[in-house]
């Protein structure tokens, strides 16, 4: 690229970044409102599903095995419907929990959190966009609660998951693994995407470095993720990547973080 053209391009990228950031802020604000609005109805439905299940059980117990066959069959059908409703509700509230992590709310500090839950909620969120062509596979170990800022860890996971999904051109897999390693937990995110050239590998943590089209990439995801993991959680982030085969990111965070 000619120097002038390069500057022009950088400027354009900068403008796109500013636009993306302010859009993010607006969306986060909106999301917080929407989540608050959905939370109460969901809570009510969850509770009602449980009460209906308890009531159906009570009715069944009253009727006994010798009750009218038609009534017993209807009860069984209702029990199945109630179970479907519960699963449907769980799916909605998983997405809501995922969104909560990114909505503009009160900043939470370090607290013991269940990383596997965080991983599952983030996958649910990213999966809603990519699951038609990408299989998300999980292999989640038995983890103790980890002292972290769940909102920030959620953001880091989301960045890595979106990058993994965007690296896969047609169909492929993203595999997320968690495990305990001594006094740390490991979260690895492996994709079967394009991989990176050596030149790209050198630069991925640089602010504003992106190989993606304007409007798609901002080059802010990995630098932010790096800061979240290494500075805010005293952890490490490493990766291996092979062109044409895929990329694996590994993050490790101490189970108990000393305040930085």
């Amino acid at each position: 690229m000619e120097p002038a053209a390069a500057t022009e391009f950088e400027l354009e990228r900068l403008r796109a970044q500013v636009a993306a950031l302010s859009k993010d802020a607006v969306l986060a604000q909106l999301a917080a409102g929407v989540i608050h609005e959905i939370n109460t109805p969901i809570a009510s439905i969850f509770s009602n599903i449980d009460v209906m299940e308890r009531s159906l059980e009570a009715i069944e117990a009253q009727l006994g095995a010798g009750g009218p066959p038609k009534a017993l069959a209807l009860l069984k059908m209702m029990r199945n419907l109630v179970q479907v409703d519960r699963m449907a509700c769980q799916r909605i509230s998983g997405v809501i929990r995922g969104l909560k992590l990114h909505a503009r709310g009160e900043e939470e500090g370090l607290c013991p959190a269940h990383l596997n839950q965080l991983v599952e909620d983030s996958i649910l969120l990213v999966g809603s966009e990519y699951k038609r062509r990408i299989a998300f596979i999980t292999d989640l170990g038995d983890l103790p609660p980890v002292e972290c800022n769940p909102q920030l860890i959620g953001q880091a996971l989301l960045n890595l998951l979106v990058n993994a999904a965007q690296a896969i051109e047609a169909e492929g897999q993203v595999t997320v693994r968690t495990a305990v390693e001594g006094d740390q937990v490991l979260i690895s995110i492996a994709d079967t995407g394009t991989g990176m050239t050596d030149e790209v590998k050198q630069k991925i943590f640089h602010t504003a470095f992106s190989t993606k089209a304007l409007g798609v990439g901002t080059g802010l995801g990995l630098p932010l993720t790096y800061r979240i993991i290494t500075e805010q959680h005293r952890g490490t982030i490493t990766f291996t990547s092979e062109l044409g085969r895929g990329t694996t990111f590994e993050i490790r965070i101490p189970i108990t973080t000393k305040e930085p």
Partner: peptide
């Protein structure tokens, strides 16, 4: 202030 919460919780307490 939400009727639905009142209904849900009181149904549970009435049953159990």
């Amino acid at each position: 202030d939400e009727e639905m919460v009142l209904t849900s919780v009181s149904a549970l307490l009435m049953l159990e």
